[in-house]
Simulated assay, not measured.
Amino acid sequence: MTFTYERKANYYETDMMGVVHHSNYLRYFEEARIAFMDSLGIPYKELEENGIMSPVLSVQCEYKRMVQFGETMLIKVSLIEYNGIRMKLNYEIVDKKSGKVTTRGITSHCFLSKNGRPVSLKNNMTEYHEKFLECLDKVSDNQ
Rank of each mutant, 00 (worst) to 15 (best):
K122F: 07
D141Q: 12
R65T: 01
V59L: 11
L112W: 11
K96D: 09
M1V: 15
T14W: 09
Y28A: 06
M16Y: 09
D15K: 03
R65C: 00
E62K: 15
M53N: 09
K100Q: 13
M66D: 06
N142Q: 10
N10H: 14
E127M: 09
N124W: 09
G105L: 11
E62I: 14
I52C: 09
Y5S: 01
K100T: 04
Y25T: 08
N123A: 15
I52D: 05
K100Y: 07
M53Q: 06
G18F: 12
M53K: 12
N90Q: 10
Y11E: 06
D15Y: 07
V20S: 02
T4N: 09
H21W: 13
T126W: 02
E6V: 13
K131E: 12
E81Y: 14
Y128K: 01
E92Y: 03
Y82D: 04
V19R: 09
F132M: 15
Y28N: 04
T72R: 06
S54E: 02
E49Y: 03
I75Y: 03
N115F: 00
H22G: 05
E13S: 11
T103S: 06
Y91H: 12
V101N: 05
D95C: 08
V19T: 13
L74N: 07
S120E: 11
V59H: 05
L47M: 15
P55D: 00
T102G: 15
E71F: 01
T103C: 15
D137A: 07
D15H: 05
P43G: 14
F132N: 11
F132T: 13
V19H: 05
G70V: 01
P55W: 07
D38I: 12
N115H: 05
G84L: 15
R33E: 12
N10M: 14
Y12C: 14
E48P: 03
I85R: 04
F69H: 07
L57W: 03
T14H: 08
D141T: 04
E127L: 14
I106M: 12
V56F: 01
G70K: 08
V59M: 10
R33W: 07
L133Q: 07
R7T: 07
G116K: 04
G116D: 06
F36G: 02
I80T: 10
L121A: 08
S108G: 14
F69P: 00
A35M: 07
T107V: 04
V94H: 00
N142C: 04
S120A: 06
Y28G: 04
I93E: 08
V77F: 11
G105F: 13
I34E: 10
M53G: 01
